[in-house]
Design a protein around this nucleic acid. Structure first.
Length: 622
DNA sequence: TCTCCTTTGAAGTAT
DNA sequence: ATACTTCAAAGGAGA
């Protein structure tokens, strides 16, 4: 009789007979289906398999006796071997089952002894194997395999651990320093070395015992393992805690621990998105700007990072997430906490030194908001900040110096479309902007907004950043690459450098234009478009351009359509959202046109600095 | 030789 | 919950 007949026999038996529920067979719920990966236990019990599993045709364990492999094959020993107390702590029993008082093992009921036979011992705990069922041709002398057995434990292909459990653990798992959870150790770190390999094969290319097909434990790893027992004659290992120091005196113990701490492999943090970007951009910036100082290079890269769109940054966030997952897989127990204090000298020195206090304050202040004194009436300081976030430090005499110097720098610094070091109305770069209509209105209507990231720079910071700005023509060109584009910082400053709308427009327009020139996908187009329309609808009437270059849609813009048309109407009429959404290059052209319109605009309301006390300024009425 | 500088983001600690 | 701190990379500069 072939296997198909055997399966039919078992299924028929399951369907025809009401199988008794025997919850005592905790250990017997292991699937022995050789087609499945061996469900090596990891200590976390999986929910029971539903009895109506379409794949198995019934409760899993009901067909267990059928595919149980002969023990001598040793192919999947763990599929049928499990510690009886797998899911219970000594002295407890969630299932209310009888247990051996010493080893906490399940007592095998008399009626079940015919199904199992000893397989070996691990840590003195007996393991059992299923006994192959009788030939199906005979009438069922024994009752069908009882239901109610638990589902198989988790697969050994735990994504946190990886493929070959024993191999991976030996390489990456830290020594287990205590045996408080022996079964956890056993379940995760004790594994038959040949679990996933056939005799004579080795996916990992490990040396193996010619008979037991066991990978040789590397010499430098022997200190971390010790024999745990044998199943079917196959040795199992446990990770062991590092050998305790021979001298137990506290001092020597600490020294030993310190030594071990030093010797322990230092696992670095996985890089975040910016670090990946930094690593990628650093050589480019170094070459382009002929910079050698890493600090300056990093500052440039930081600016470029902020100028990226969310979509462009997403690539690096994805990479960072991948790195993070890989890191977690390789070092499942590692946390960033382990590296704390390893590089703390710098901060310790800094905080302990009074001489560096101004710099500390400058560093601290860089995280805070700045309200420039010279470009903003002093009386408006409180008014400006009142409804907004309060700086963490009042402008005392000490830090006022930095505040003022920062403002001097504002005038001397060639303003780019990026957020300057210190600006009247800090505006987020386009990449950080919320392009929702509400946010757009809010940003344009209440532009005087204290921004946490607005730096509060020191003299040296200023000097460095000033140099950086001068040394980074690429950034400026990147953000206003088009020679025809009027949206250069210089031009905007001529119009009104303090205009928040212009800053916002320049930032968002330039970034949008650059973005859409490079972007192959219309990511976020609708939002940006909406934002631009919102802003344009609040612009004053402007001299009409003679022509509107829009080669992609010549029929949409006729001379007639230009009559009595505001820029917003022009754009609204010329740019159909759905059309643009599918044709980003067209939108890019539109952005250019919008820039042209902006260029031709009179200063209008921007001639007067926006009063911070009137956040709901009506831009449509000059 | 060691620390700082400089950036952003993630994660930890402190309040 | 929020603010603050530390670390990840890099290499020159300065103590």
């Amino acid at each position: 009789m072939d296997i198909r007949d055997e399966n039919n026999y078992i299924l028929e038996t399951v369907q025809s007979e009401e199988t008794p529920s025997t919850p005592e067979v905790d250990i017997l719920g292991q699937t022995s289906n050789p087609l499945h990966l061996p469900p090596f236990p990891t200590g976390t019990p999986a929910p029971p398999q539903p009895a109506s599993d379409p794949q198995t045709g019934g409760f899993f364990s009901n067909i267990l006796p059928e595919p149980a492999p002969p023990v001598y094959q040793q192919l999947v020993p763990l599929m049928v071997s499990a510690p009886a107390h797998l899911y219970s702590q000594p002295g407890t029993d969630r299932q209310g089952q009888l247990r051996h008082p010493e080893c906490n093992a399940l007592r095998i009921p008399e009626t079940m002894t015919q199904y199992v036979r000893p397989a070996g011992e691990l840590h003195g705990v007996p393991f059992w194997d299923f006994v192959p069922p009788p030939p199906p041709s005979n009438p069922p002398l024994r009752p069908p395999f009882p239901t109610g057995a638990p589902a198989p434990p988790q697969s050994a292909l735990d994504p946190r651990i990886g493929g070959f459990l024993g191999h991976t653990l030996l390489e990456t798992a830290p020594p287990v320093s205590q045996q408080l959870v022996p079964l956890m150790v056993t379940n995760t770190a004790t594994v038959p070395a040949h679990l996933y390999t056939q005799p004579g094969t080795d996916r990992q290319g490990l040396l193996r015992h010619p008979e037991g097909n066991v990978p040789g434990i590397p010499e430098n790893m022997r200190q971390y393992v010790r024999p745990a027992g044998e199943l079917h004659g196959v040795p199992f290992w446990d990770f062991v805690p590092p050998a305790p120091p021979s001298n137990t005196s506290t001092t020597k113990k600490r020294k030993c621990e310190a030594k071990q701490d030093e010797d322990r492999l230092y696992i670095k943090k996985p890089p975040n998105a910016f670090m990946i970007y930094l690593k990628e951009q650093r050589p480019k910036v170094t070459a382009e700007l002929n910079l050698t100082a890493s600090a300056a290079v990093n500052a440039v890269v930081g600016k470029r990072w902020r100028s990226l769109s969310k979509a462009q940054q997403a690539k690096y966030f994805d990479q960072a997430e991948t790195e993070r997952c890989r890191h977690a897989t390789e070092h499942p127990d590692w946390t960033t906490k382990e590296n704390y204090g390893k590089k703390r000298k710098r901060t310790r020195n800094r905080t302990s030194s009074t001489a560096s206090e101004p710099k500390q304050e400058a560093q601290q202040a860089k995280r805070l908001c700045v309200m420039p004194a010279q470009t903003q009436p002093s009386s408006s300081y409180s008014a400006a900040k009142e409804p907004l976030e309060q700086p963490q430090r009042q402008p005392t005499v000490t830090n006022l110096r930095y505040q003022q110097s920062a403002c001097v720098q504002l005038q001397n610094t060639q303003t780019t479309v990026d957020a300057p070091v210190c600006q009247v109305n800090p505006v987020l770069p386009a990449s950080r902007m919320d392009f929702s209509p509400s946010a757009s209105l809010a940003s344009s209507a209440a532009p005087v907004q204290l921004q946490k990231d607005a730096p509060f720079v020191s003299d040296t910071d200023e000097a460095l950043l000033s140099v950086v700005e001068q040394l980074d023509p690429l950034l400026t060109s990147e953000q206003s690459q088009q020679p025809s584009s009027p949206l250069t910082g210089h031009h905007l400053n001529q119009t009104n450098p303090a205009s928040p709308v212009y800053t916002s427009l320049s930032t968002s327009f330039a970034s949008s234009a650059t973005f859409f020139q490079d972007q192959k996908e219309p990511i976020g187009f609708a939002d940006i478009q909406e934002d631009m329309w919102t802003l344009l609808n609040h612009l004053p009437a402007a001299p009409q351009p003679d022509t509107l270059s829009c080669p992609n849609i010549p029929t949409l813009i006729s001379p007639a359509s230009l009559e009595n048309s505001s820029p917003s109407k022009l754009l609204a009429s010329s740019v159909a959202p759905t059309e643009c959404q599918s044709t980003p290059p067209f939108f890019s052209q539109t952005v250019k046109n919008m820039m042209g319109l902006l260029d031709d605009l009179e200063p209008g309301p921007f001639a007067q600095p926006l009063q911070p006390s009137s956040p709901q300024a009506d831009w449509s009425s000059p």
